[in-house]
Each structure stands twice: as structure tokens, then as C-alpha cells.
């Protein structure tokens, strides 16, 4: 029992940050799954984080009400940004979103009445791990339902081939707009969760470090299924703790190394629904080859095709 408590004290902080980072990663996944690389989640989180801090600190609102308001304000911010950004080509969108993060930092620093300016803000309320887990569970349920719905089918089509999807009546713009709105709400929630976990936020809380963490989590876990970013966020959050315990010599570069290894050997991330279908097809080919069926021949482009024939 005591050992369990010790474990809890040692790792509850890691767990809390895993939950918070999952929300950040899901916000990014929302737009990434529509074929858009955008870091605007950081800005939505800043809006949600400072709003939640003000709601609880200045107005004394309860935690959950503040969290809901943070989500709504994040959604509002995303509606405005999406209206401006959706005109851009995808790589310019990524660049524009980074520029927006730089701008929003300056805005945060120069509006001390809203954000505490350079001093930052102390957040008087702390969210428990259980509360964070409930929040992530609710958001996960939303993504689960989205995946099972017509939206889930449409967004996959838009991501894989927006032009082909449009000739099936799918409006890529509409789908991407919805994706941005969801990203905004979840980003706002993530900001509030971050604020109530750290209990102190400043301009540097919502800056490039978060952007790196969330893209790394999403790439690591996989951006083709909603569960991927959650797995990625937990692995990425726990990694420094694990390396510190096991191999302290490499803890500074562990994140970078893991990210490189994943990108080279598992470019679609840890959770990849397509890989299952590919394995199944490979098994079937093998089976029919064993059965001596002459219908199956080595296909050009398969791994054996690389061998020269002379």
C-alpha cells in the first residue's frame, strides 16, 4: 500500500501532464486529420488558459464553469482564425500559424490587465488528476463519435484526396472549418487544463515549446486515428521520467532520438489502422501462395522488386 502511494506521489504529476498534453495533441489532430498542418492550438490554448485563470481568480467561478467558458472562447478564436487561414495553402498555413504564436506572445506580454503581462498569473484552483481524466474522457468520446459518423468518413476523404472528395459532394472547406472549430474548443480546454495543472501561467507557457510537444506527440502516436495522439502524448510525457530512472545519461536527447526513430521506422505513428489491413492482405497473399495458386505473383513495387534480376 505504501509503495503504491509512493508511486502515486512520484508519478501523479506525470500522469496529469500526460492528460493535459493529450488534449493539446487532440486539438492538433483535429485539423491534421483534415489535411491541415497548423499550430494555432497554442493560440487557442492561450485564450482558454488566461480566460480560465481570470474566471477563477478574478470572478471566483468554479472550475468546471471556467473550463467550459475557456472551451467556448477557444472555439470563438478558432472561428475567426479559420476564416482568415483557410484561404492559405497548407504549407503557408503552417508558417502563418507559427507567426501567429509569435504575435500572440507579444500580445500576452502587453496586456497585463488580462494576462498579468510579464509577471504572469497565479491560478488559485488546481484540477485533480481525476478531473483532468474526466475531461479527457469526454473529449475522447466526442472524437470517438466523430470517427464513427459521416463527418469521420468525409474528413478521411478530404485528407487523402480533397479534389476527389469534392467530386463526391464533400465540401472540403466545410469539413476543414468544422475541424478548426473542434480544434479551437479542445485547444481552449487544453489551455484551461494546463493553467489549472501548473497553477501559474505566463506568456512562455503558451509558446513554441508546447507547439513542439504536441506535434511530436501526434507524430509519435499516429495522426490517422483519434487514439494515436493520446498514446503519443503519454509516451512523450513519460519519456523524460522513464529515461531519468533507467538511463539518465541520455535523458536530454531521449525525446529527439525517439522522435527520429519513429519518423524513420514508423512514419504513420504507433497507432495506424491501415497497417492492420496491409498485414491482413500480406497474410492472404502468403496463404494463397502456399496453396500453390498461380493467380498470385510478386507485384512490382513490393519489397522483393528491389533485387536486381541478373
Amino acid at each position: 500500500m505504501e509503495a503504491l502511494l509512493d508511486f502515486w506521489y512520484a508519478y501523479s504529476a506525470t500522469l496529469a501532464f500526460g492528460l493535459v498534453n493529450s488534449l493539446f495533441a487532440l486539438s492538433m489532430y483535429s485539423v491534421l486529420s483534415a489535411g491541415i498542418l497548423s499550430f494555432t492550438t497554442v493560440v487557442f490554448a492561450a485564450v482558454g488558459g488566461f480566460a480560465a485563470a481570470q474566471m477563477m481568480g478574478t470572478f471566483g467561478l468554479p472550475l468546471w464553469l471556467a473550463v467550459v467558458i475557456a472551451g467556448l472562447l477557444g472555439g470563438l478564436a478558432s472561428a475567426i482564425i479559420a476564416a482568415l487561414f483557410l484561404k492559405l495553402e497548407t504549407h503557408w498555413m503552417a508558417l502563418a500559424s507559427l507567426a501567429l504564436i509569435l504575435i500572440s506572445r507579444v500580445v500576452v506580454l502587453n496586456t497585463p490587465s488580462l494576462t498579468g503581462g510579464v509577471m504572469g498569473m497565479v491560478v488559485p484552483v488546481r484540477a485533480s488528476v481525476l478531473e483532468l481524466a474526466v475531461l479527457l474522457a469526454i473529449v475522447s468520446l466526442v472524437f470517438f463519435r466523430l470517427h464513427k459518423s459521416w463527418y469521420g468518413l468525409a474528413i478521411r476523404a478530404v485528407r487523402e484526396d480533397a479534389a476527389a472528395a469534392s467530386t463526391m459532394g464533400v465540401s472540403a472547406r466545410q469539413i476543414q472549418m468544422i475541424a478548426f472549430l473542434i480544434s479551437g474548443v479542445v485547444g481552449g480546454l487544453a489551455g484551461a487544463a494546463m493553467a489549472t495543472t501548473l497553477q501559474y501561467i505566463s506568456a512562455d507557457t503558451f509558446y513554441l515549446g508546447v507547439a513542439f510537444t504536441m506535434i511530436a506527440s501526434t507524430v509519435l502516436g499516429g495522426s490517422f486515428f483519434w487514439f494515436g495522439p493520446i498514446v503519443g502524448a503519454f509516451v512523450f510525457t513519460a519519456l523524460p521520467t522513464i529515461t531519468q530512472a533507467v538511463l539518465p545519461e541520455i535523458q536530454d536527447i531521449a525525446k529527439g532520438v525517439v522522435l527520429l526513430v519513429i519518423m524513420i521506422y514508423l512514419p504513420r505513428g504507433l497507432i495506424d489502422p491501415r497497417a492492420r489491413g496491409l498485414r491482413k492482405a500480406a497474410r492472404q497473399r502468403q496463404q494463397s501462395a502456399l496453396n500453390g495458386s498461380d493467380a498470385v505473383e510478386a507485384r512490382p513495387g513490393s519489397s522483393t522488386a528491389g533485387h536486381a534480376h541478373d
Binding site: 459521416w150 468518413l153 478521411r156 476523404a157 487523402e160 463526391m168 491501415r274
Partner: peptide, 15 residues
């Protein structure tokens, strides 16, 4: 569409 099953492809066509 890459990553979709045969049925999902046609279902997308039914959008």
C-alpha cells in the same frame, strides 16, 4: 482513398 476499406470507399460515395 488510402487507408479506407472497400466498403468505406463506396460509403463515401454515398455521402
Amino acid at each position: 482513398f488510402s487507408g479506407m476499406s472497400v466498403l468505406e470507399q463506396v460509403l463515401t460515395g454515398c455521402y
